[in-house]
């Protein structure tokens, strides 16, 4: 079964009950963060990165975490994805606390539900573009042939069907990020959460725009809950919800806030 066939069925189902679902989804909590704190202790200093962040993300949201460098965006993403553990506070997925799960369960949860896009792409240098996309499917235990087939569809979807046999050092930065995006979606079923940590951070503005367009397009197409981080306001405006991280605390913003010059200058 190809990627297209599999998800075409899903899309059809979604259309049939989309109206009802829309209203249901609006009130379906997916991620709830309560009083999240993260402190790094070193011999030299004690650094409180997050000081009691609380927020809720609903299914289908496209959320932007906005903040300057060092504000704790990546830390928050790492906590949400289970890569790191909070000093205090809790993260709930569908009402289930994340860190009540065992380590194996967390890894399994991440494998099935979360797609990650890194700022620095982090492709496996000895895998071709196609094989990089295949890797999460293989980790899930799917056969090589199935993984190859699904991955080919995905990689075509991101516009790199002619680069399937290229190695990362033969791709441009934009192409690498496209591969990373395809990889993040390479799960069966699709991941419920897409996390992108500064996906355009190392790209030029034109390439960055196309990447964001791709991410948001795919997110919208498959109704994925998406969280991305950025320190750039124009990228943040693309999200449906914006959280501002400042001084370890999180504040919800609306897109209109980003048009307010006095508000913007207060951020600097």
């Amino acid at each position: 079964m190809t990627y297209n066939n599999l998800y075409k069925n899903q899309v059809d189902l979604t259309i049939l009950i989309s109206v009802l679902y829309y209203f249901i989804l609006m009130s379906t909590e997916f991620i709830r963060v309560e009083n999240l704190c993260k402190t790094y202790i070193s011999p030299a200093e004690r650094l409180e990165v997050l000081r009691g962040c609380s927020f809720t993300i609903f299914s289908g949201d496209v959320v932007c975490l906005l903040g300057v460098s060092g504000s704790g965006k990546t830390t928050l993403l790492n906590l949400i994805s289970g890569l790191d553990s909070p000093t205090s506070g809790e993260i709930y997925y569908d009402g289930v606390p994340l860190h009540s799960l065992t380590l194996d369960q967390i890894y399994d949860f991440r494998l099935k539900n979360i797609g990650f896009i890194f700022q620095d792409f982090h492709l496996l240098e000895h895998f071709t573009a196609l094989e990089n996309v295949m890797s999460p499917l293989l980790l899930q235990g799917h056969s090589e042939s199935f993984s190859r087939s699904v991955s080919f569809d995905l990689i075509s979807r991101v516009g790199l069907s002619d680069k399937v046999d290229s190695y990362p050092d033969q791709l441009s930065s934009g192409q690498k990020q496209r591969v990373a995006i395809a990889r993040s979606l390479a799960k069966v079923p699709l991941p419920r959460l897409l996390i992108a940590d500064e996906p355009t951070g190392t790209l030029d503005s034109r390439t960055g725009d196309s990447i964001m367009e791709l991410i948001l397009g795919l997110s919208s197409e498959h109704n994925l809950t998406t969280i991305f981080t950025t320190h750039e306001l124009f990228v943040a405006k693309l999200a449906s919800r914006i959280f501002l991280l400042r001084d370890g605390k999180i504040t919800s913003l609306s897109p209109s806030d980003l048009n307010n010059e006095s508000f913007i200058s207060s951020l600097v």
């Binding site: 994805s81 890569l83 380590l103 194996d104 890894y107 399994d108 949860f109 991440r110 494998l111 099935k112 979360i114 990650f116 982090h122 496996l124 890797s135 999460p136 980790l139 990889r183």
Partner: peptide, 16 residues
Amino acid sequence: REEYALLLALGANPKK
């Protein structure tokens, strides 16, 4: 190290 970190980030089980 980086590769293994990536695999773990993608969800691979450490035992695997």
